[in-house]
């Protein structure tokens, strides 16, 4: 499975960012191999619409799930309509992905 994680850094040991719309990077992890790709978040510096822009990156990267500390209403609307599940996560990117695989994360509606 491909999982997108909002992060302030650019590798698996970087922290999960509190907000998807404003995070520096979106790290997309292939959970079978733990290989990852780093996408810079276009919404990081945007005025409004940051959440939608980040959601578009997540979708374009082919992720089926997304993890962040929190989500705005616009990005949640995009994910739920597009069939991408959003989860609240914390710790490092690696820990958050592991928690998801262990079924420990809470999905947001």
């Amino acid at each position: 499975m491909r999982v997108a994680v909002a992060s302030s850094g650019d590798d698996l040991d970087a922290p999960v960012d509190m907000r998807l719309g404003r995070c520096a990077n979106i790290i997309v992890v292939e959970t079978d191999t733990m290989n990852f790709e780093v996408y810079s978040n276009p919404g990081a510096l945007a005025g409004t619409g940051a959440g939608v822009a980040a959601a578009q990156v997540v979708a374009d990267a082919g992720a089926e799930a997304v993890i962040a500390g929190n989500f705005g209403i616009n990005s949640l609307r995009a994910f739920s309509n597009g069939g991408i599940t959003a989860y609240i996560g914390s710790g490092t990117v690696r820990q958050a992905v592991q928690a998801l695989l262990d079924d420990e994360l809470e999905a947001v509606e």
Partner: peptide, 9 residues
């Protein structure tokens, strides 16, 4: 960012 194409939506 007022329009988004999220997979099929």
């Amino acid at each position: 960012s007022a329009i988004a194409v999220i997979r099929d939506a």
